[in-house]
Structures are given as C-alpha cells and as structure tokens.
C-alpha cells in the first residue's frame, strides 16, 4: 500500500465510517444504543427545525458567496490586467488582512456593527439617524456581511489566477474585430475566467454553510445556522448520533447543490462561448 493510501484511509475513510455508524445509533443516557436505525435521519426529514436551519444556512452562505465573488472580481481583474510590476506584492497586500485569526476578524465586525459600534457612532454624529440601527448586529445581515469579508481571500486568489492566464492577444483580436469593451468582457474575459469564478464559489460556499462561530457571535436568535445546531448536539443537548446524522445530511446537500451549480455553469459557459 502506498503511503498516500494509508493517510487517506486513516485520515478520511475511517473517520467517515465512524461518523456514518455513529449517525445510525441512538443516545442512551451517556452511552449509545448500537442497534442500527434510520431514526435520526427520519427526524431530520420530518422535524421543521432541521429543514428550516438547513435552508437558512444555504441562503445565508449563498448570498455571502455571491457578494464575495462580485466584490473580489474587480480587484482580481485590476491586478491581472492593469498592474504590470510587482503583481505578487499587490496580491500579498490584498490578502494581508486575512493573515490574522478568523476569530479576530469576526470580533472586529462586532465592534464595527455593534450598538455603539463604528457605523452607528459615525451615523449618529453626522445626524443621519436618531437612534442606533439595531439590525446591524445580531441579525442575518450581520452574518452575511462578516462572511463576505472574512472569506474574501479565498475568492481573490483563484479569480486572479484564472484572469491572469487569459491570453491578451485574444482581447486584441476581439477589439480588432470591432467589439467594444463591454462585449469584449462578456465574450472573452468572463467565459475564460469562469473556472476561477466556479472554484471561488465552491471554496466559499462549502465551508461557510457549516460555519459556526460567525452566527454564534453575530447572528442573534434569528441568525442561527446548521453548524450551531450540530455543535449543540455534541454539547449541552448531548445527542452525538443526531449530530453525526446532521453532519452527513449537510454533506449530502452540499454535494447535491454543488453538482447542480456545476451543471448550470457548464450550460452557461456553452452559451457564452
């Protein structure tokens, strides 16, 4: 057996099998009843809390992904096409804020969005508002803003790589054949950078769906996501099998959504090309 295979088996396959078998057991006081059953999965399918939180997680992380890619695309574009010296330095500078701990950045957003935070104090002192805006913190908006910022580095890098790879002579050819800047972007640059867009979307969507710390610190009662529910199963609720079942359901859903997304982008790419 090759070493890579051993690592794969110990690091991925074995834990996965443990997770699957755990999800088919039931809680029994502080131990487990090991009779296999699909009861946990049935509960995920029937009880409204699970489907609601799953849907909310996909919604929040979908929007966060959309905005992250939308905001990072121009930055990556600028470095790829308009910066000619020290490109690496530019990229490093852009990702510099993301070298700090994730937790710190989430906390920083609490300070910005808080009741007496940066935004509210600024608006108050300028007289734009009479009382602090309460929807800024402890809301789904807060979670979306924070996620969109915290994961930006994961969008900039793949976008930059795919934009940088585009053959500049294609753009010149398009101009020679009479395309304006907009048409040129839509027909050449965008389709050729789609692989970067797709991988950026995946890199952000998959981990943010299960994100736990951002909704815990900024979400408030209505911003709870599926990751928090999974954590609770392993914590105070003390139902590890349920937590395992939820993790697997989440995994399957992300897999399915990713396939659909791939399918749609492939269609769109065919159209554009």
């Amino acid at each position: 057996m090759s070493p890579a295979l051993v690592v794969l088996i110990i690091g991925i396959l074995v834990p996965f099998i443990i997770l699957i078998s755990l999800s088919m057991w039931t809680r029994d006081g502080f131990g487990f009843d090991m009779t296999p059953t699909f009861e946990n999965y049935q509960r995920v399918g029937t009880e409204p809390i699970f489907s609601t939180l799953l849907a909310r997680s996909f919604w929040i992380s979908g929007i966060a992904t959309f905005f992250t890619v939308l905001l990072c695309y121009p930055m990556a574009y600028y470095v790829a096409f308009h910066v000619h010296r020290n490109k690496m330095l530019w990229i490093v500078l852009m990702t510099l804020p993301f070298w700090t701990s994730y937790l710190l950045r989430v906390f920083a957003w609490r300070v910005i969005l808080g009741y007496e935070g940066v935004i509210n104090s600024a608006f108050l002192s300028m007289g734009w508002i009479q009382a602090p805006l309460e929807f800024l913190l402890y809301s789904q908006t807060a979670v979306i803003i924070t996620l969109a910022h915290a994961w930006a580095a994961f969008a900039i890098l793949p976008l930059y790589v795919s934009l940088e790879k585009i053959d500049k002579s294609l753009l010149e050819a398009a101009t020679d054949l009479g395309d304006g800047p907009v048409r040129r972007f839509l027909r050449i640059t965008l389709p050729l950078s789609l692989p970067g867009v797709i991988s950026a979307c995946f890199l952000i969507f998959i981990p943010t769906t299960g994100d736990y710390i951002t909704p815990a610190l900024l979400g408030g009662p209505d911003g709870v996501m599926i990751g928090n529910l999974i954590q609770l199963q392993f914590g105070p609720v003390n139902n590890w099998p349920m937590g395992a079942a939820l993790s697997i359901v989440l995994m399957l859903w992300i897999g399915a959504l990713a396939l659909v997304f791939l399918f749609i982008t492939r269609k769109a790419k065919d159209r554009l090309a």
Partner: peptide, 19 residues
C-alpha cells in the same frame, strides 16, 4: 437525572432557535 437534563436542554435549544 441525566434524562431530564438532556430533555430540558434540547427543548430550550429548540425554543431559542424559534421552534
């Protein structure tokens, strides 16, 4: 007992999440 404690925590978590 542990049964009660788990049930209580589970119910309170449901309520906090809005169910």
């Amino acid at each position: 007992g542990q049964e009660w404690e788990s049930r209580m925590n589970e119910t309170y978590e449901l309520i906090k999440a809005g169910f």
